Computed example of a mutant assay.
Amino acid sequence: MFDPQGPSLRELAVQALSSVEHGYDLLAPKFDHTPFRTPDAVLDAVERELRQLGPFDRGLDLCCGTGAGTEVLRAVCRQRVTGVDFSAGMLAQAAAAARADGLAEAEGVAEAAHPTVPVDLVRGDAFALPFAGSAFDLLVSFGAFGHFLPRERPALFAEAYRVLGPGGRFVFPIGAPPPIRSRAYWMLLGFDAVMKVRNAVWRPPFVMYYRGFGLAEVCAELTRTGFEVSLRELTDLGRRADGSPRARAVVATKPYRQGS
């Protein structure tokens, strides 16, 4: 699961016994060499959908980590891109990657699909984003929702709604649950069970669950927040045995209101 440049078992254990913030500070230098990073295939599939939904001007990557999603925004936004995360270590890695990308562009070796778009990296709380209302017309997030308990999602979605302008989109991928007879199903079930035991006996808690972010529940919560919700099949990621897509993009649109 980990390449040779990834964290050791001891490093992962230390991270798992830390808080979420401190754990990601520790993991940040090696995060991109772990399976926790969103795969490029998923990033590319979402980018293709965003190109069809755009154009966009100002994009926000919520819980940006080391900046993989920020690069997606740079490919589809015309004016400015912002990444926000509460881990200083992850933001430092994102900043280093952005500097390297800028240097490559200055030397003329960057891909044309990733134009020179200014990037701001901001340390902040997802429940109290440090931005004015209607600051963005696109918001994305990749791989972060397992760090939020179900009871916390209404506040999270309300902040996403607040910082989007009318007509703005909140877009993120969500995978189909693995079949109950698959090894993946039981691996995820076991992981979540271990995390629940860990959090029951150890402080500070480390919130990281894989099975609590169901499509129907999430769409209902987004609708209650005020979004208009639609789904787009990420067919590039393949289909399951029953013909359904392995993943979809949730597209939550902040509607135009009279007088807005």
Rank of each mutant, 00 (worst) to 15 (best):
K254E: 05
T235M: 12
P166R: 09
P7Y: 10
Y185E: 06
L103I: 03
M195W: 05
L237E: 09
R123C: 12
A132C: 05
Y161E: 09
M187S: 13
L43N: 04
A96D: 08
K254W: 07
T70L: 02
D120H: 10
P39K: 10
S244R: 06
L91C: 13
L188I: 04
S18G: 14
R211Y: 12
V229N: 10
P173N: 14
A92E: 15
A144L: 03
S260P: 00
Y256G: 02
K254M: 11
N199W: 04
F136N: 03
D3W: 13
Q5A: 05
R10Q: 13
L103C: 03
V42A: 13
P39H: 07
V171T: 12
G259I: 07
C64L: 12
W186R: 08
L9N: 15
M1V: 07
A200M: 04
R257K: 08
R183V: 14
V251P: 02
L103W: 06
V81G: 00
D57S: 13
A247N: 06
F172R: 04
C77G: 05
R37H: 05
D3T: 12
E105Q: 14
V201M: 09
F145E: 01
A88R: 13
K30C: 04
R181D: 07
A144T: 07
V117G: 05
V201K: 06
V14S: 11
P177C: 10
G165M: 12
F227A: 08
D57K: 06
A126Q: 11
Y185W: 15
V14E: 13
D236V: 10
P29K: 15
L62R: 10
F170C: 12
M195K: 03
A128K: 13
L62K: 08
T235W: 12
E107F: 12
R248M: 07
L53Y: 05
A126M: 10
V250R: 03
V251E: 04
P118I: 01
R257P: 00
M1K: 14
V109I: 15
V20T: 09
Q258C: 04
P154E: 09
G102V: 00
F206V: 01
A96G: 07
C64M: 12
G6R: 13
A28W: 02
E159A: 06
S8T: 15
P130Q: 07
E71K: 00
H33M: 01
R183E: 11
G190C: 13
L12Y: 13
V197E: 01
F148T: 14
E107W: 11
T223I: 08
R37A: 04
E47D: 09
L129Y: 06
L9W: 14
L17V: 11
A96P: 00
D192E: 07
R211V: 14
S87F: 13
F36Y: 14
R246W: 02
Q15M: 14
A200E: 00
A184F: 04
Q93H: 04
A241K: 06
L188V: 04
L60P: 00
L222H: 05
A193W: 11
A28D: 06
R198W: 04
G83C: 13
E221K: 14
F136Y: 09
V250W: 01
